[in-house]
């Protein structure tokens, strides 16, 4: 089976993996320990994940 015959996700993992990690930083170390290049994006859900506060903020224009 050639690369082109594999499902897309398998094609992805058949090549060198480069990761953008969004949110929890703990995953970064595990990936780096496996020799994988990782770019970390420091992101949190709006209002720390409080849905009521996030809804208010959305209406107030954030």
């Amino acid at each position: 089976m050639t690369d082109q015959d594999r499902p897309q996700y398998q094609q992805l993992l058949a090549r060198k993996v480069e990761v953008v990690n969004v949110g929890l930083e703990g995953f970064v170390k595990d990936l780096r320990d496996c020799g994988i290049d990782v770019v970390h994006v420091d992101w949190k859900p709006s209002a720390g994940g409080d849905p009521q506060m996030a809804a208010l903020l959305a209406k107030l224009g954030v």
């Binding site: 949190k44 209002a47 720390g48 506060m53 996030a54 903020l57 107030l60 954030v62």
Partner: peptide, 8 residues
């Protein structure tokens, strides 16, 4: 205050 609460 919106930016403070949104970002934490």
């Amino acid at each position: 205050i919106r930016l403070v609460v949104d970002s934490g």
